[in-house]
C-alpha cells in the first residue's frame, strides 16, 4: 500500500479520531490547532483555531456536527464541525487531557491533570443540544487516582466510566454516583503508566497500552483481563480493528534513545497482533519517530497513525491484508 502523508501539524501528533461514517479524520497535535481531513484522500478540510496550548485529545459527536477538544491551555472547547467556530469553552484550573462523548452525545467526560497542588480529576459535563443552553458546571466530579489520568471513556450504556493513567491502574466508576466500582488487579495489571485506551465497537471490551511494553484487553463490565500482547517497546497508542480480529500497537523507544537508533531497525512500526492468538501478524513502517496516535476507520479498511514526526499517515489496506493467516 502507498500511505497518504498529511503534514498539517508542526508539532508531534497526540490524538486521532474518525467520525462514525469514517469520512472525516480529526487530528490533534501539540501545535494548538486541531485539524479535520477527508479520510479517503487526505485532503485538509479545515482547522479549529482558538486553543492556546497543546491539544491532547478530541471526540466527535455521532452525527458529526460537534467536536470536543481538551487542551493544555486549561480548557475544553466545543466546536461546530462544519465551520470551525467555537461554541463553548469549559474552563478548568488545570490542563484538560482526555475527552469523550457519551452515547447519545448528551454528556461528556473530561479529565484534568494534576497541577499546582490540585489533584487530577474526572469531570462529567452535560452537553446541551442548543448552544445557548450550554452551561459549564460539572454534573459529577470524580477524584482519587494518583498522577495524571491519561484516558477516561464511557462504559457500556453510559453507566460507567473507565479511566486509566499514570498509576497503571484501570478503574471503573459509576457515572451517576461517582462511586469507584472496580480496580484492576495489581498482579495482572500494567506495571507502568497506561498511555492509551481503545474501546471495541460494542464497548464490551477495551484495550489499554502501557509503557511497560505491553497492551492488555479487558472486559468492560467485570474488568477481567482477557488477553495480553507483549512487544519490545513502550506502547504509546493502541487501536482495534472493527472488521478483523486484529489489534494495532504503536510505540517507539524513549525520546532519549531516538537519535541513537538506526531507523532501519524498525522500531517505529505500527505492530499488528492477532486479537485472539496474541501473535504478531505484521508491522507497518514509515514514521521517523515514535507513533503517538492510532485510529482505525470504522469500516476497518484503513487506519491512520500520527507520529512524533508531525505526520499523519493514512493507510488503505491492500486486499492481501484481509487474507492474513496466522
Amino acid at each position: 500500500m502507498r500511505p497518504i502523508l498529511m503534514k498539517g501539524h508542526e508539532r508531534p501528533l497526540t490524538f486521532l479520531k474518525y467520525n462514525r461514517d469514517g469520512d472525516l479524520l480529526f487530528s490533534c497535535a501539540k501545535d494548538h490547532t486541531p485539524t479535520v481531513w477527508f479520510a479517503d484522500n487526505g485532503e485538509r478540510l479545515g482547522t479549529y483555531r482558538g486553543h492556546n496550548g497543546a491539544v491532547w485529545s478530541c471526540d466527535v459527536s455521532r452525527d458529526s456536527t460537534r467536536l470536543i477538544t481538551g487542551s493544555a491551555d486549561q480548557t475544553a472547547k466545543l466546536w461546530d464541525v462544519q465551520t470551525g467556530t467555537q461554541l463553548f469553552t469549559f474552563n478548568f484550573d488545570s490542563p484538560a487531557r482526555s475527552v469523550d462523548f457519551a452515547v447519545g452525545d448528551k454528556l461528556a467526560v473530561i479529565t484534568t491533570d494534576p497541577f499546582m497542588g490540585l489533584t487530577s480529576a474526572i469531570h462529567i459535563k452535560r452537553i446541551a443540544r442548543d448552544r445557548s443552553d450550554q452551561v459549564g458546571e460539572s454534573v459529577v466530579i470524580l477524584k482519587g487516582p494518583q498522577g495524571r489520568i491519561n484516558r477516561a471513556v464511557w462504559g457500556p450504556l453510559n453507566k460507567t466510566i473507565i479511566s486509566a493513567g499514570e498509576d497503571a491502574v484501570v478503574r471503573i466508576w459509576d457515572s451517576e454516583t461517582g462511586k469507584l466500582l472496580r480496580e484492576s488487579d495489581k498482579e495482572d495489571g500494567h506495571k507502568k503508566t497506561i498511555t492509551s485506551l481503545a474501546k471495541s465497537n460494542d464497548v464490551s471490551h477495551f484495550l489499554t497500552g502501557s509503557l511497560d511494553k505491553s497492551a492488555k484487553l479487558w472486559d468492560a463490565r467485570t474488568l477481567t483481563l482477557i488477553k495480553t500482547y507483549v512487544t519490545e517497546r513502550p506502547v504509546n497508542a493502541v487501536a482495534m480493528s472493527p472488521l478483523l480480529d486484529h489489534v494495532v500497537l504503536g510505540g517507539g523507544q524513549d525520546a532519549s534513545a531516538v537519535t541513537t537508533t538506526d531507523h532501519r531497525a524498525g522500531k517505529f512500526e505500527a505492530k499488528f497482533y492477532d486479537k485472539i492468538l496474541q501473535e504478531e501478524v505484521g508491522g507497518v513502517k514509515g514514521h521517523f519517530g515514535p507513533i503517538n496516535a492510532l485510529a482505525f476507520n470504522p469500516d476497518g479498511k484503513s487506519f491512520s497513525s500520527g507520529g512524533e514526526d508531525g505526520y499523519v499517515r493514512l493507510h488503505h489496506f491492500d486486499s492481501d491484508y484481509f487474507n492474513i493467516k496466522v
Partner: peptide, 10 residues
C-alpha cells in the same frame, strides 16, 4: 497531503 512514494508493505 502527499501520497508516499514508497511502497509500504505489511
Amino acid at each position: 497531503t502527499m501520497v508516499s512514494t514508497e511502497e509500504i508493505l505489511l
